[in-house]
Design a protein around this nucleic acid. Structure first.
Lengths: 261, 261
DNA sequence: AACGCAATTCGACAATGTCGAATATCCTCC
DNA sequence: GGAGGATATTCGACATTGTCGAATTGCGTT
């Protein structure tokens, strides 16, 4: 890991958390000399990744990120393929649907279909949800057992009173998810919202994304038709990506001690 | 400018243009040894800014960018303040409206209101348009005369047959825009689409963004009511940001030879 | 107008990233 | 199914490059 790039990424990450920061504040947060931080920030600014707060000496994230992320969404094959299916699923179920990918300990929503009832809803694309508190996250973790093992070793945050933070309980859920390909979450991220998710698989059988249906907790558990629709949607998207089987075969945990060769 | 960060940004920029690239392709494009590029890419990947193409050894932009850009949009004070006004403007005029900021030679659309006629339209937030081919770009350049001077020195690309690329003609437009605060563009970015834009000013009188109304070229020139609505919108947003005067005073070109002190 | 804080500039040192060669891995073509 | 080529990845020595502390400038405040 190149030090300067690592530090630059940490600067972006700090600005992501704090929105607006001065050089001194950043240097305190990162534990680096001010002049070092200054050099990094100016380099990022030179590419539009960071920008000066209008009328101030503090810094914030820059517009280049917006352009980059727009291209990122366009390059995602899954997203382009999935959109028509998730829209259909939203219509069928009358519920909002999501598509997400894993980013370390979180799930990033890469596409969102609003509930078709026409009510005013916030667009969710770009939102990040802690993986352990989300149905999509549980799916993704259940099929990345190595990463999941690491995650369960760390202390997990609680978002609502219902968030499951006990490693043993989560581990048990992962095992059963890897069996049948369906994950659920009840009020674990947002009170009043529960969700069901299923994995999306590519040609070589890797789980690369997850689809979810968001169900108001008042209507929990969802009807069987919702579950069937979700399963079909995940299967259709996966098939379009070239997957031969669905649900994916349960993953193997790579062993700590590899067999001697 | 820190070399490693500069190179990392160039890697992102290359991936932005080409979508999917292998290490060798990247190294050819940047004129750097493969091992150097590899180190940079792996560092970026370690922060989710770049990710491996599913089922391949090529690389693409990563999901962290989406999360960062989402926060970027949230931190923009102008955007939050402007949204309700641009929505109103779209309703009043029956046309689509845009909000944009400058990113070097381009304008990045940070908010977009669709035409209220209910037709299917592509969301434009995140789109980048060459500044010299856009009404918003012309506004922003007209109030950054130093940057504009540099831009006019470089050769300008043509997007449609109507794109103005002659430095003299553009320079003349900038002068008149700086006078009355209204810029126009006819078929210069997209055939069939023209637009009018006005500057948004903050407390200290800096032009920090632009609003625009997109007019189908078949309805050009727009009605006076559209121009008045646009002007009012720009003034309202600016006032909410603490600006005392609108339109902003014409900017002074900083002189090449500063007065001796 | 003067104080204090924060951002910025500068230069020397050595830690750090860079590069070329060697190795491993993947894909393609026979 | 095997061999060849191409591409990604690892490694270690060198010197370029980033880092750091001190000095300077600029800004906001009293």
């Amino acid at each position: 890991m190149i030090q300067a790039i690592d530090r630059a990424a940490k600067v972006l990450s700090s600005l992501q958390g704090a929105r607006h920061l001065g050089i001194t504040e950043l240097s305190a947060e990162l534990g680096l000399p001010v002049s070092t931080v200054h050099g990094i920030v100016k380099s990022l600014q030179g590419h539009g990744l960071v920008s000066q707060e209008p009328g101030g000496n503090r810094y914030m994230l820059g517009p280049a990120l917006l352009k980059l992320s727009n291209v990122y969404l366009d390059t995602l094959d899954v997203r382009a393929r999935a959109m028509r299916w998730t829209l259909e699923l939203a219509r069928r179920t009358g519920l909002s649907t999501r598509l997400g990918v894993q980013l370390f300990d979180e799930v990033i929503i890469i596409h969102h279909n609003q509930r078709p009832d026409g009510s005013q809803q916030m667009p969710e694309t770009g939102l990040a949800i802690p993986a352990h508190a989300s149905a999509m996250g549980k799916v993704l973790l259940a099929y990345s057992p190595d990463y999941a093992a690491g995650l369960l070793g760390r202390p997990l945050g609680s978002l609502t009173g219902a968030t499951i933070t006990d490693p043993a309980r989560l581990g048990a859920q992962f095992a059963s998810i890897a069996g049948n390909g369906i994950a659920t979450e009840e009020d674990e991220a947002v009170l009043g919202e529960s969700s069901v998710a299923a994995p999306i698989v590519d040609t070589r059988g890797n789980v690369i994304a997850a689809v979810a249906v968001v169900v108001p907790s008042s209507e929990w558990p969802p009807d069987t038709s919702v579950l069937n629709g979700l399963r079909e949607t995940a299967r259709n998207i996966s098939r379009e990506l070239g997957a031969s089987t669905w649900p994916p075969r349960a993953p193997q945990r790579s062993v700590a001690v590899p067999p001697e060769s």
